[in-house]
Computed example of a mutant assay.
Amino acid sequence: MATIRDVARRAHVSTATVSYVLNGTGVVSEATRERVLAAIAELGYQPNHSARSLRTRSRTIGVVAPGIAGRLADPATAEIIAGLSEAATTAGYCLLLAAPTDTESETELAVRLARSGRVDGLVLFDLQIEDDRPALLTAARVATIAIGAPVAGVTCPIVGCDLRTGAEQATQHLIRLGHRRIALLAAPSYLSISEPFYAGYSAALHAAGLRREAALVIEAGSSEDDGMVAMQELLAARTPPTAVLAASDMLAFGAMHAIRDVGLTVGRDISVVGCDDLPLAAHTFPPLTTLRAPRRDLGATLARYLIAHIEQRPAPPVTLLPLRLVIRHSTAAPSRAVH
C-alpha cells in the first residue's frame, strides 16, 4: 500500500507539500498540485482518515452538485441548502458547496474531496436507481448521505419525502372531484424518486377501480419546457385527460402553459396538481394545487443525520418526511361541456 512518502518521491516534492494538497492548506502552485494529484492517482494512495480523525476533524460537510450556483436560484434547492447550513452551523460544522468542471465529473470531484480530508461528510443530490457514488465514497472512507428514495444496494443513509403517500393522496383528491382520466407527468425514470411517485398514483387508481393507461403516463424531464411538451402530447390524444398529476411544480407550470395555449382553462377544463409548493405556486393563474414538501426540514434532517454518521452515533437508514396536499384553484370537478 502506497504511503505519503511514496507520493512525495513520485511527485518530486516534500511530504509537507503532499499534505498541503490533500488538506487544501499552504501555498502550492497549480502545476505542483496537479503533479501531486497525478502521483496519488498512479499509486492509488488513500489517506488514512481514520488515524487522522483521531487527531482532528475538518468539521465541514460538503455538497457536490452540477451547476450548484445555478441551482441555488431554484427555491427548492435554496431551501434545502438553507436547512443544511443552519443545522450544520448549530452543530459546529461548516458547509462547503462544490461544482464539477468540464474536466472533472461530479463523482470524481466528490471522491477527490473525500480523499483530501477537507470534508468529514458529503451530501448527494438526485440519488439515482443505478448510482455508483455512495459505494465510491464509502470506499474513500467518508460519511455520506443521499437525497432521494430508497434504492436496492445503496447502504448510505437516505433522506427524502414520502412521495408514494403524497402521490396517492393527490390522485385520490382528483378522483373525489370526479376525474376518471388522470394523467401523470413522471420524473425521469433513472431517478430514485420516480418509482414511488408512480406507485402512489397507481395505487390510488387501483383502489378506485380505475384502469391504468400507458398513454396517460409520460416520462418528462424536470423543466417547465419539459412539462409543456409532455402536456402538448397529452392534449393531442384522441381523448385527452381531464386531470394531470405532475411530479414537480415546474412540470405543472409547463402543463398549465400548454393548456392555456390551446384555449382551455386550468381548473375548469383540465385540473392540474404539482409537487413541491414552490413560492410561485400560490401566484400562478389559477393558483396551483400541489403537494407541499418540507424542504428546510429536509435539509436540517440531512445535516443532523450526516453529522451523527460522522460522529459514529446512530441514525436511521431511511427517513421519509410527509408531504401535505395544498388545495387551490387549479383543481375542480371535470367540465362536462368540454369532456
Rank of each mutant, 00 (worst) to 15 (best):
E106A: 11
V338F: 13
S14I: 10
R33H: 06
S271I: 06
V36S: 04
D132K: 09
A152Q: 15
P316G: 07
L43S: 08
S85C: 07
V21E: 15
V154H: 09
E30Y: 01
T17M: 10
I147S: 02
A41K: 12
P47R: 08
G267M: 07
A82H: 14
A281V: 09
L298F: 11
A258F: 08
R133Q: 02
L320M: 11
V244L: 07
T3C: 10
R52W: 03
A203G: 08
L136M: 14
R260I: 05
A110I: 09
L72R: 04
A2Q: 05
V266F: 01
A91L: 11
E104C: 14
V154N: 06
L321H: 01
T56I: 04
R59Y: 11
P188R: 04
T15A: 14
L235V: 12
G26Q: 13
P100V: 12
E108R: 14
C275S: 01
I81H: 02
E224W: 04
A215V: 07
I147T: 11
H206E: 12
L251I: 06
G148N: 03
E30G: 07
Y201P: 09
S105T: 15
R133E: 02
R71D: 00
S223K: 09
T165N: 15
A303G: 02
L136N: 08
T284P: 03
S202R: 15
R328Q: 09
D120P: 02
I80T: 15
A11S: 13
D74Y: 10
I145S: 10
A149F: 07
T155V: 12
Q232N: 11
C156K: 09
A215W: 00
V151I: 10
R57G: 12
G44L: 05
R164N: 00
A243S: 07
D132A: 14
G92E: 12
G274M: 05
P241V: 06
R115A: 06
R176P: 00
S335T: 08
S202C: 05
L288R: 00
V318E: 12
L251R: 06
M228W: 06
D277S: 10
V142A: 08
P241C: 04
A208D: 05
I182A: 04
T17K: 00
D277M: 00
A282W: 04
V159L: 01
P316Q: 10
D261G: 00
